Simulated assay, not measured.
Amino acid sequence: MVNIALIGAGKMGLSHLSILGAHPDVKITGVCDTSKLVTDVLTRYSGFDCFSDYKKMISKTKPDAVFVAVPTKFHAPIIKDLLEQGIHVFAEKPFVLNAKEGLPLLELVKQKGLINQVGYHNKFVGTFQEVKKLILDKAIGEVYHFQAEAYGPVVIKKKQESWRSVASEGGGCLMDYTSHVVDLLNHLISPVEEVFSSLVKPVFSNQVDDAVYALLKLENKVTGVLSVNWSDDTYRKMSTSITILGTEGKIICDSSELKVYFKADTNRAGYSKGWTIKNVTDLTEEVDFYLRGEEYSAQVDHFVKCVEGKAENNINTFAMAFKTDQAIEMIREKSAV
């Protein structure tokens, strides 16, 4: 049994808490949030020990691991404190507010030999997992271009301010939406090496960006386009997709459907010349508990298994998330030129 505590019971924190609470190998030792309304409700209806001060919670409950789901500006000091105490950490994305904060954490987690993971759930989506296999096998030949996209209806009118609308706290489309797309791109093809040009622009927000567009070069020298907009109300919810062009074919993929085009006959099982379409339900492994999507339970289960020593800590590590933070900073810096 792995003893796990949670810091930050907002939207994602409560999502993680629900999944952890249903996990057969997890005991929730404590929940921390600064909102008395939240902790009062949890104390009354969940039976969890709730705290307003995470340090008191850690001291009293002594968890093996902690989920950190607070605004991004608080990530670095909290994660550092937990690592110094020898506690395994799962942090919500993005990893830290700026890449400079991440370097000492990478050194510390390596020194301590602790399990570390960041909440980029797309790597646990069946369609994207299949894309990774196709790319590794060079199934569509040499990749020469990509288009990575995400759209959704987060900010579609002038609205009241929250921490997500304040850049210094980790808000904005670049930090919130674009980080998901960049991290997926880093994973599927290669990490971002250079930003040729970028536009980081507000649409309805006063203090942060609502749309991000960029021309990128990856470490393997493949170039392509990034297009992200969270002020697009033609979408019911966030939609992340990637199009990859290769010398022998083409891939178009989102979280629900994978389309692969082969120019010639292929002996790859389940595929044929021309277009093959696969649904995420055909590519996704079952999970014990379903909430919002199998990928959310799968990422939590992976972290738990890593802590138990049953899985290798090689998905969404701090080091991988740090590369995403670096790319985000390059996009921001290039837009200011």
Rank of each mutant, 00 (worst) to 15 (best):
N220Y: 10
E193K: 15
F128G: 01
V41I: 11
Q326I: 13
I135N: 04
V192D: 09
P202F: 14
V2I: 14
G10L: 13
A9M: 06
E107H: 09
Y45C: 00
V155L: 01
P24V: 07
F289R: 00
T281W: 10
M175I: 06
I58R: 07
Q111W: 02
V208N: 05
R236W: 06
V131I: 02
I242R: 06
V118D: 06
N98I: 06
I156Q: 00
E295G: 03
D176Q: 13
N220W: 08
S197E: 15
G171E: 14
E312K: 10
A298P: 02
G170P: 07
H88W: 08
I28P: 08
I4H: 07
N314S: 12
I78T: 04
L82V: 05
D209Q: 03
S227A: 14
I328P: 04
E333S: 02
L20R: 09
I252W: 00
A139Q: 05
V307Q: 05
I331M: 12
S297Y: 14
A76Q: 12
L14V: 12
E161A: 09
E308A: 09
L105G: 05
N313A: 14
T43C: 10
K80Y: 09
H180V: 04
V89T: 11
Y235A: 01
G270V: 08
D49G: 00
N279T: 05
T223E: 15
A214E: 06
G293H: 03
K278L: 14
P104N: 11
